[in-house]
Structures are given as C-alpha cells and as structure tokens.
C-alpha cells in the first residue's frame, strides 16, 4: 500500500467505513506483532500489545498527521506500548533466562552447516536477536526487515539519527560475534552468492 492508498483508506475509515480498517490491520499485523514479541518475549502478551496498538491507532486516526507515513506512526505506537509493557513486566517478574539448552547440546565447535538444520539456524538467530537490548532489537528489525532509513527509525524510537547509527553498529557487531561461529555466517554468505 503506497502513501496515496494509505490516505484513501484512512479517509474511508474516518467517513464511517470501519471495515476498511481491516486493510490496515492485515498490512501491519506481522510487523507490529514481531516488534512487540521481540520486546515482551511472550506471544500472548505480544498479541495483547499488538491489539492495543491497533485500537489506539483507530481511536487516534483523526489526529494522524497526513504528512507523516502511516507505518512510522504505527511503529512508534508499537514501540512505546511494547516498552511500557516490558517495564511493567520487569517489575513483576525476574527476567527469564533464554533457554540455551539446544545450543549446548549441538556443540558449535563442529562445522555449523552440517550440524544445524535451517529451522535450528532460525532459532539461534532469533535468540541472538532477543538477547539484544530492547531498543536495539527494534532498530535491527526495522532496519533489516523493513529497510527503513536511519532518520525514520530515529523518529520511531525517539532518539537522534546519530544515536541510532551507534546502536545499529553495536548490535550488528554483537550479532556478528555471536552468530559467526554458530551459524557460520561466512559460509552462509558464500551459499547466497
């Protein structure tokens, strides 16, 4: 959906065509859910956050500034609600350690490609992303999945573009260090080329 279509859909919703809002939900649900899940680390809670995001978007659709992108606005709401949920979660629970048992069993000293199936590689990558700091996860997800420019990511997470660049560099280094032995990043790169 391009910006023109986005604005048409918003107008339809504002004129009382509530069903048109489903187009927005379907379009953004995966990204909103992924961002929420990466912050709260729990599917049920992530679904609740995602639902709250869409309800908030619907309620404040009138105040949406047509000059900005709908996606940027929705992701900013997602980021804020997820971080709020994460903070209240943190107060209630002792942080659960991410289960490393599979990684220990597999023994990464051997050739990573022969040891790990595609599914296992995905799990390792996902866990590595989940180990990043909350804002770093959001930055990595928006930068690599959505290919969003630095300025837009800065607007979403509410920090300066320079700060986003620093955080992106650090999280990229962390992921590289963690994944190069586990999934054999260089071999992976060779495979794709």
């Amino acid at each position: 959906m391009n910006t023109v279509d986005e604005h048409k859909t918003i107008k339809r919703v504002l004129n009382g065509d509530v069903k048109a809002f489903e187009e927005i939900v379907v379009l953004f649900q995966d990204m909103v859910f992924t961002l929420a899940y990466r912050v709260v680390k729990n599917r049920e809670e992530a679904e609740e956050v995602a639902q709250d995001v869409f309800i908030k978007v619907f309620k404040s659709l009138k105040s949406f500034n047509e000059k900005s992108k709908l996606s940027t606005w929705i992701y900013r709401i997602t980021y804020n609600l997820s971080i709020n949920r994460y903070r209240s979660q943190k107060q209630q629970l002792v942080t659960t350690k991410i289960d490393n048992s599979n990684e220990n069993k597999l023994g990464y000293t051997k050739d990573a490609l022969t040891e790990l199936s595609e599914q296992e590689k995905r799990e390792v990558i996902n866990k590595a992303i989940l180990r990043l700091a909350e804002t770093e996860k959001i930055i990595i997800t928006l930068y690599y999945y959505e290919d969003l420019p630095i300025a837009e990511i800065a607007e979403i997470v509410g920090i300066s573009p320079q700060n986003v660049k620093v955080k992106l560099f650090r999280s990229r280094q962390k992921l590289h260090t963690e994944l190069k032995d586990k999934v054999g990043l260089e071999i992976l790169d060779y495979e794709y080329n």
Binding site: D30, Y37, R38, Y145, L175, L179, D189
Partner: peptide, 11 residues
C-alpha cells in the same frame, strides 16, 4: 542475510 533467515513472527 542471517536476520532475514528468521522470518517475521505471525500472530
């Protein structure tokens, strides 16, 4: 490449 191997989560 590594990050894109892990697809988006789906509700």
């Amino acid at each position: 490449r590594a990050v894109k191997m892990s697809p988006l989560e789906k509700p």
